[in-house]
Computed example of a mutant assay.
Amino acid sequence: MAERKPIESAPKDGSKVTIMWKDGDGVVNESVGQYRDGGWWVYTDSDTQKKVDPTSWRPAPDDDDDQ
C-alpha cells in the first residue's frame, strides 16, 4: 500500500485517488475521491456524492503499484 501524502500534493486533474477526510462527527474516513468543480468529492453511496475537506491522499487501489 502506498504511503499517504499531504493533500496539497494530490493531482487536481480529475483523476481518482484515495483520500482521508473527517465527517461531521469527527470520524476519519478513507474513500476514493476526485478533485473537480473547485473541491474534493467522494461517493457516500452509489448515487450520492459529497464535497469533503481531505487531509491526505494516496493513489487509488487500481493505480497502486504495490498491490
Rank of each mutant, 00 (worst) to 15 (best):
M1F: 08
A2Y: 09
A2K: 05
E3S: 09
E3H: 06
R4K: 07
P6V: 02
S9R: 03
S9T: 10
A10Q: 03
A10L: 01
P11K: 04
D13E: 09
D13F: 08
G14L: 05
G14W: 07
G14T: 01
S15F: 08
K16Y: 14
V17R: 06
I19D: 01
I19G: 00
I19C: 03
M20D: 15
K22T: 01
K22C: 03
D23H: 06
D25P: 00
V27E: 10
V28Q: 06
V28I: 09
V28H: 02
N29E: 03
N29Y: 13
S31G: 05
V32G: 09
V32A: 14
Y35Q: 08
G38T: 04
G38C: 08
G39M: 14
G39N: 14
V42D: 01
V42W: 02
V42S: 07
V42K: 11
Y43R: 12
D45H: 10
S46E: 13
D47Q: 13
D47H: 13
Q49F: 05
K51I: 03
D53Q: 14
P54K: 06
P54Y: 07
S56Q: 04
R58L: 04
A60W: 03
A60F: 02
D62W: 15
D64I: 03
D66E: 15
D66Q: 12
Q67S: 08
